[in-house]
Design a protein around this nucleic acid. Structure first.
Lengths: 336, 336
DNA sequence: CTGTTAGCGCTTTCAG
DNA sequence: CTGAAAGCGCTAACAG
């Protein structure tokens, strides 16, 4: 590649008739430069199209103004949102984002942290799948600070931002509060997200609503067709539910669309709520009520904390536990 | 941040009793080092946990082994797949991927290209939305090579990989070939992807099948509920279609699920095909036949071309036009 | 307010 | 086969 002959700080200095220190001061906004000199140099910079060589600067300052975002797989549906938010904050603070997929491979993940030692990135935002113990060790050995996304032990040597796991209760509370009593569950009762089912059962109990086995529809995958099947199932019950709590949005969308297809009205006849607040929630008719897991928020906060830590010296690690947020849309409450 | 005292090439040299040139030769696999020396030095490297400072190396070699992926918005559904593929190839070649969203903002996009001049990245993979003329100018001024994804003019000063726009014909050919004649269209007839509707009309014509206005269902958004509505519409026709060509996969999924909900069999009664081959195609029952737009393939190729160009000196620019690929699954052909 | 000077950690001729 | 020395482009004392 016939690289354009790069213009350096020396070129600018020479042409402007000053020393390179002066130029350096100007491009770094160091106070105490005579306005006239500044003007003169800036003109030359403009003229020559000079832009500082960040690599050289990094070598000196030991800061690359790059941070890594290490996640298991960007194709995972939540991550684009997260990556986006992270990049926003990074950009606002003049940092760049390097994307690293570690594929849920612990050794790969740990390698990523070590790699950072070679001074390419100033910090790492990590969604870890490693054992906290191993992770702790590697973080301690790392040359740069790490900010974690997810729920971790209290004593992690890193800032982290996680999420309280009460999404299910939020969704159920909402349905009960709007007066529904025959609330059905659609989804998986055993998956690692089975705690959503637990939330279903416990919410009923704490509101003295009888649990009714026939109102539970279990599907394998938490996808749209499971929701559609659930809708068909609920529709043919003698006593139809007046609300459905779906284990995630995909199922909820299937349920809502399925019920509508069968002639019921949502939310009038049946209210439907999902969990995750995926972008599609606003693309369906009616728009889906859901519980946001604040993935963008977590990305944003993690980067903010990381950048703070890169800047300042040591201070106590922060753990931030976000509260999932219920977002009421048309599938549970008729909008005016 | 109390950075661990970094061990440098000098530390290794001193401890191993050799010069740093020798260490440099060893870590760069330069031939002509006495095996014994090599062994000795490698042991010290291991012992000290030395890893070369890439920033310093970059300053010298003028290569950062980083490439930028500049897209408009990672949250766009195709990009994660693309970003993933790009990162794969990058990693295989020992490059890192820096993610940059330019938000379909031409000036931002062009700024990205210029920024690369500051030597942080060795090349850029770009999904451009700028005018080819402006783009050409900026690319020519850029200090690093650019590889483009999408369809561009022949005379672009960059390698590019695009896609032939015959997805619609592929889908229609398939339906006709499996013997369907009452083929319906579901989607948008005017959108910028309206050429899919054109493909529908022209395919019918070239196979001497009469066009039937009542077999066209037009919805605003290319989303699932449009498909569900279309299904209801088709279901209530006196003469139902025996196949549906949907403008994209979301609509196709809606159509298929809707028809099944109404009691029809897919593909026996109605074959359904979509376009885009989104991951969900394999998550529905039946699995959806679709036309892949090879987004991962494009990401892969773009990075490959870019890396080749970073390595070698000038050579003729390549334009690669990929053929969309029909992927037959259960929604059009009954699987054994 | 500005210039001189000494590196940051590495690669790379050029000698030996 | 190995070492000495120069320098990539920049920043940051330290003098003046």
């Amino acid at each position: 590649m016939e690289t354009k002959p790069k213009v350096t700080i020396d070129d600018v200095a020479r042409k402007a008739g000053v020393s390179k220190s002066t130029v350096s001061r100007i491009i770094n906004n160091v106070t105490g430069v005579k306005p006239y000199t500044k003007l003169k140099v800036n003109r030359v910079i403009e003229e020559l199209g000079f832009t500082p060589n960040i690599t050289a600067r990094s070598l000196k300052t030991k800061l690359s103004r790059q941070i890594a975002l290490a996640i298991d797989d960007i194709r995972n549906p939540y991550y684009p949102e997260l990556a986006w938010a992270a990049e926003q904050v990074a950009k606002e603070n003049n940092f760049r984002l390097v994307l690293i997929n570690h594929y849920g491979n612990p050794s790969e993940e740990l390698a990523v942290i070590k790699e950072a030692s070679d001074m390419r990135v100033d910090g790492i935002v990590l969604l870890s799948i490693s054992h906290p113990k191993t992770l702790t060790k590697v973080i301690k050995e790392a040359a740069v600070p790490v900010a974690l996304i997810g729920n971790y032990p209290e004593d992690m040597p890193a800032d982290w931002v996680g999420l309280r796991e009460n999404e299910g209760y939020l969704a159920m509370d909402h349905l009960i509060r709007i007066g529904r009593r025959r609330i059905a569950f659609a989804g998986n009762t055993t998956l690692h997200r089975g705690d959503r089912y637990t939330a279903y059962v416990q919410s009923l109990a704490s509101h003295f609503i009888d649990f009714n086995r026939s109102l539970v529809y279990t599907g394998e995958r938490l996808a749209i067709d499971t929701g559609l099947e659930a809708a068909r199932y609920f529709y043919h019950l003698n006593e139809k539910p007046d609300a459905v709590f779906a284990a995630n949005d995909l199922v909820a969308i299937g349920v809502a669309q399925g019920l509508i297809g069968l002639g019921l009205r949502v939310p009038e006849d049946v209210a439907v709520v999902g969990i995750d607040n995926i972008p599609w929630c606003t693309l369906t008719t009616p728009k889906l009520s859901s519980v946001s897991n604040l993935v963008a928020e977590m990305g944003r906060i993690a980067v903010e904390k990381l950048i703070l830590r890169i800047g300042e010296e040591s201070k106590a690690y922060e753990r931030i536990v976000l509260e999932p947020r219920l977002i009421v849309r048309e599938s549970t409450v008729k909008q005016m």
